[in-house]
């Protein structure tokens, strides 16, 4: 009997310890402030170093579509490079972003050309800043955090995280991010100009476990009051960690990105 009590006490202690160890990472990363939520969202959406494949679909009001497939590499908070794999007319094009700098490499032109964040290499509603997305905290300061009356899928109220651009070079002056507290993921992001005009809304859907601790929405949709009836969709696949030298994220290397697939 005494042995049995001892056995159960030991089991309870082990279970408690295991539970404490399992919940320790969550308590360490428990978000209370706007800045902490911003960092948590970046961790969720943009693992520090990864490769992924993306499909971009532009849908017109009449339902016709145009699709692009990109291979993307990201390093740190502000280095991203994407290579167009399809359609054939775009194949071999590459776009590079290092912080506020963006370049487009076209095989026929053969050298990188500086592009701006408000242009779009694919047309449609996504602009270059959306396609070459760096961490939100690289471009934005967390301003405030309020509990919204809107409810998420789990029935818990969404949080509204308000962000403001750090510099005038950022594509959108202000972001309004609605966060699902349970999923620790944005549900929508609304982008505004400095005058308060809504430019576009991004919808985050289909949370997927990509493995290696990467779990994030696999579909991002966007629409804009400036492009009535048009919609653009970004689908993520095969996202996995990949360590690369900094030299890969240079203009000199852009013509060779295709060799890294």
């Amino acid at each position: 009997m005494r042995n049995s009590s001892c056995f159960y006490a030991k089991k309870i202690f082990q279970s408690t310890l295991l539970l404490a160890l399992l919940t320790l990472p969550f308590s360490l990363f428990a978000q209370t402030t706007a800045q902490e939520w911003l960092e948590a969202i970046d961790r969720d959406l943009n693992p520090p170093q990864y490769e992924s494949y993306r499909k971009l679909i532009n849908i017109e009001p009449d339902g016709s579509k145009k699709e692009f497939v990109l291979f993307t590499l990201k390093q740190g908070r502000e280095n991203v490079v994407s290579l167009f794999l399809s359609p054939a007319s775009e194949k071999g094009r590459a776009t590079l972003r290092v912080g506020e700098n963006m370049w487009l490499y076209i095989p026929n032109v053969g050298r990188p050309i500086r592009i701006t964040s408000l242009q779009s290499v694919t047309g449609g509603v996504f602009n270059n800043a959306d396609i070459l997305k760096v961490d939100y905290q690289t471009e934005y300061n967390a301003v405030s955090l309020v509990e919204s009356e809107q409810k998420g899928l789990s029935g818990i109220n969404l949080l509204q995280l308000n962000l403001r651009a750090k510099t005038g070079n950022v594509a959108y002056d202000r972001l309004e991010m609605m966060i699902d507290q349970e999923l620790k993921s944005p549900r929508t992001i609304r982008a505004f100009t400095s005058s308060g005009m809504l430019i576009k809304t991004l919808y985050f859907k289909n949370i997927k476990d990509f493995g290696n601790g990467i779990k994030r929405p696999s579909v991002v949709e966007t629409d804009s009051p400036l492009y009535e009836g048009y919609k653009s969709i970004m689908i993520f696949a095969k996202m996995k960690p990949r360590d690369l030298p900094a030299a890969v994220f240079t203009t000199e290397y852009m013509g060779r990105i295709e060799t890294l697939r």
Binding site: E100, N101, M102, R114, I115, T116, S117, L118, Q119, A129, G168, N169, V170, A171
Partner: peptide, 12 residues
């Protein structure tokens, strides 16, 4: 040289 002076302005 080439530089982005703002989100819609490039100079070279």
């Amino acid at each position: 040289f080439a530089s982005n002076l703002s989100s819609n302005f490039e100079m070279h």
